[in-house]
Structures are given as structure tokens and as C-alpha cells.
Amino acid sequence: MKKYPCLLNILPIYSANYSLSEEEEDSLLISSYKGVALDEIKQELKTILQDGEISLVEFLDMDGLEAYPAEDEEDAKNFLVERLWCVLFPKEAP
């Protein structure tokens, strides 16, 4: 299974345990990745959205931390696109 260190590092901020507003989440995400790091998280997002071996629902559950409690794989994929990709790369299609 592939590893996604950038995603695993940032996804917890979306948990209700962190209780950040969407604006705070967006701001934190944008400010956390620049330069090489931005390229890396972009590549991770592209890869995971194509990754047929991984359960995105489980990935977003994060051992119960619940970055996002997706209803199904499609819901999980939509979350990654809308809440991460579109925020970081608003002018590009994933």
C-alpha cells in the first residue's frame, strides 16, 4: 500500500475533535504547503484519487479520529477534491 505522508499530516485538522471552522481549515492548509511541499501534496492527491487499492473511507477515518466520516468511496473522493484539491489548486482539475 502506498503511503501519503503529507495527507496523513494535514488531514487531522478536519476532524471535529479539532473543531476548526472551514475558513480556518482552508487557511491552515494553504499556509502549510509551499514550494516543494506543495508539489508533493499535489502528487499525493493525484495518486490517492487513482489508487484502487486503498479504501478512502478508511483512510479518512484515521483510526477513529474521523478527518471525515465518509458515507462511501465517492463521498470520500469528493471530500478530498473539494476540501483539499480545490482549495490548494483552484484553477486545475485533479
Binding site: 496523513l8 499530516n9 508533493e40
Partner: peptide, 18 residues
Amino acid sequence: DKVNQLPEGADTITLGPG
């Protein structure tokens, strides 16, 4: 370790019970 593993340009780290 987490700090050292960050790619250049990243400045946020998360640690959990794992």
C-alpha cells in the same frame, strides 16, 4: 523525526497516539 521528514516548504506537523 516528524520535523526532519517534512518536505521543504511544509511547516505543519501532526502527532497522534500512534
